[in-house]
Design a protein around this nucleic acid. Structure first.
Lengths: 338, 338
DNA sequence: CTGAAAGCGCTAACAT
DNA sequence: ATGTTAGCGCTTTCAG
């Protein structure tokens, strides 16, 4: 091995427990000896063994993230990695490290059980995509620090954190109203797509806040695909009067929406304004560039980190929370109406 | 704590070293006792303490990845996470876990030093984006298992792995030739953009393999932006005869290229074929969908994992290698010429 | 404010 | 084939 605590103690003429205490900033050590020992550590190029510290302290300052990382996830779901980045960063600031562990819904449960039993991490983060009922049971039964990134689609006692999509919907509606749009339409995913449903709910809320309402003829639901976005927009264009703005529940739908409008020769934003949620890699590539409600998912990761560390210290804490740091990115698909 | 090796030993009526040996599959244990002990472990719901195992064995079956994970990296660089996913997966299969650690070029060196000194990982992977001369010195001096993901832009003794962009260029050229294209053009990044330069070199190679050559009037270099892609394409359209196919060094340039062709009313692929490298999230969103040379970056991560594990076992091994698993994804921007 | 000493739970060399 | 035993390098009471 390299230099150990014993070597440092000898060189400094103190006991190893004194060295340990300066390592951990124990209050009982006089500044004089502390400084002296630190100097020796530096001179000897001493670094405490991570393995020994972990073993002796019974912790390892590590949290593992269980998530689906199969082929091209980063492409389909860049947001996940933005959350990961936020999580890692905030964890790092608190002295914790992030272990990535790819898995699927089936295996996640066993992995979690093993991690907890072997204490190979001090806490677990779970991307909602691999969440399941049995996993939820394991987590709550064992009372292990954990957080689910995204709200599970079933009731349980697990801790989770998610964006407030209702709020984002309200923000979108309010923004369009503020520009002067009045006949606002919404196209989104089917009822079981909670994110979309919440955004729809929020849009309704936003309109009613301003004394307006979302007409049924202006609401269409389908799959979250470009094709369905196209179809739903076509339906909207059959209505009269035509809507003057369309809110798309997500970027894929927005893609189809823009296609449909182009095809009919309808000008964006002159004739109809278009808005979507989430700033996606291609939000700026479509013509015209899309105005979006951007959700700061990195921040969500950071919040999760904070909760996790709190839970490591207070294992019987429970959290189920919506957080949102969303803001409008105005681009070319909307404009002020006279 | 929970159940320990001692408890299992007592319950099974054997010594702890026997238990340890069945845990590690030591050859000297009879199948009979092994099975018996395993049964007891299962009954008692025993899991060995990760911290204790690490401490006693002097390893921790962990590799950390140093990479830039600042705001919106996943958007700008989805490939990095695909590599990460491949790395994690292949590492996991070999019993290793991946720790993510965000950093920048300046801090990376100190982090690496600490990781190595504290042995808080058995190996280090470094994304080339945070690579630096001092880091390279640390790595080679300390002789620690490591691999750089991407070729460093300076000579050194560090181990690295990268895609063979020259080969990809050759593949692209060969494909276009096979479709019947003959007047092939290339637009890409400036000379210091190694990836682009290599692709260009490969394209030249591919053409000369077939007895053709890349005309100077058909080569334009600029920044890797949509705007420059547009400009360079405009230049190409000033040449005569016009090229019948354009190879774009990357997707951003391809975006501008397509814009320019559209603007001039040139039909893709009827008048001019377009091809790019890397299957990006928006490769399928542009009109027409882009034919690309897809580089299997996930596989690169997997290869890196393999090398890393090899190096943990054979610390004085050195590797500097290009690997490539690339394949053509034919889409709508190219077609067979008669 | 400092030191002595008892572990933490496992691995592995050595003995049987 | 199995058991004995000496660590691994640190943390953490508990005395002084």
């Amino acid at each position: 091995m390299g230099v150990t605590i014993k070597d440092v103690a000898e060189a400094a003429g103190v006991s190893i427990s004194t060295v340990s205490k300066v390592l951990n900033g124990h209050y009982s050590i006089s500044e004089k000896t502390a400084e002296h020992v630190r100097q020796i550590m530096h001179d000897m190029n001493y670094y405490p063994s991570a393995n020994a510290q972990n073993f002796a302290s019974g912790a390892n300052h590590t949290v593992v993230l269980l998530a689906d990382m199969s082929e091209k996830v980063a492409f389909r779901n860049p947001h996940m990695f933005e959350i990961v980045a936020g999580l890692e960063e905030a964890l790092g600031k608190r002295g914790y490290r992030l272990i990535l562990q790819g898995t699927d819904e089936t295996s996640a449960c066993g992995l979690a059980e093993e991690i907890i039993s072997r204490r190979s991490a001090d806490a677990i983060a779970i991307h909602v995509g691999v969440m399941s009922h049995p996993l939820s049971a394991v987590l709550t039964k064992l009372g292990f620090p954990h957080i689910v990134l995204g709200m599970p689609n079933f009731d349980s006692q697990v801790c989770w954190i998610d964006n407030n999509n209702i709020y984002s919907g309200t923000v979108a509606a309010a923004y369009l109203m503020s520009l002067g749009y009045r006949r606002i339409a919404f196209i989104g995913g089917k009822y079981y797509d909670l994110g979309s449903a919440h955004r729809l709910q929020g849009v309704k809320q936003g309109l009613s806040n301003a004394g307006f309402q979302l007409d049924d003829q202006y609401i269409w639901l389908g799959d979250s695909t470009r094709a369905d976005g196209f179809q739903m927009t076509a339906k909207l264009l059959d209505q009269k009067p035509l809507p003057d703005a369309i809110i798309c529940a997500n970027n894929y739908i927005a893609l189809g929406c823009v296609d449909a409008l182009h095809k009919k020769g309808i000008k964006i934003p002159e004739d109809i304004g278009v808005m979507a949620f989430d700033d996606y890699p291609f939000s700026q590539i479509i013509e015209p560039q899309l105005t979006v409600v951007d959700i700061n998912v990195r921040d969500m990761g950071a919040q999760a980190a904070k909760f996790l560390v709190d839970m490591i210290r207070h294992p019987n804490m429970q959290i189920q929370t919506y957080i949102t740091t969303s803001n409008i990115i105005p681009r070319d698909s909307t404009k002020t109406r006279k």
